[in-house]
Amino acid sequence: MELNLSAVLDSWRFLLSGLGVTLLLAAGVTVLSLLAGTLLTLGRLYGPRWLSAIIVFYIDSMRAIPVLVVLVWVYFALPIATGLNLPPFWSALLSLSAHLAAYVAEVVRAGIQSVRPGQVRAGMALGMTRAQILRKIVMPQAVVRMLPAFGSLLSLAVKDTAIATVIAVPELMRRADAVAGQTYAPVEVFTTVMILYFLVIFPLTRGIDMIYRRVSFLGRS
């Protein structure tokens, strides 16, 4: 088997700009899903019962439906159903975030519930309000305790972006497919791209693990 690395070298700019789109999409998905997931959790834990029931149903449904299915539904069906026509990038951002938010919500809930009840009592004994206790005592500790799981979510956010190739978002996976098709060197191209993904995702998760090892005591009550 002969490797044709010139196929990769000739299109490195094209591939790298794809990586840029991947990172942008992943960053957007991370921010949006963190925001939405936290709101979902707060609504679930502290909202009225009906809201809590709806949120649990939403979370469990997203845990049941593949992200690809959410993605194609948002891209192909949503415009017809609502008239709202989103470009591929925005469709991907919306659907990947909606899906990941359910997982974020599970992680945030586990984090909040893992904080010892005695910590809440200590805040109450000081005369703090429920909101103050949540903001100043529970959440800061929960965030620390969530870090390892947050690392996996971050890597999931990057990995999920590759699925956006299905609706032609010009991210790394899509670009790789294009280059592979043009150059007839799929083995070289896909192998290179696989290494590229690894070089992005591996340090991300490792970095978070390292940070966690340094700050874990802040969440240990």
Binding site: S155, V158, K159, D160, T161, A162, I163, T165, M173, A176, F190, V193, M194, Y197, F198, I201, F202, T205
Partner: peptide, 8 residues
Amino acid sequence: RNVPIILV
């Protein structure tokens, strides 16, 4: 563990 499945 650190590459997208769809790529695999």
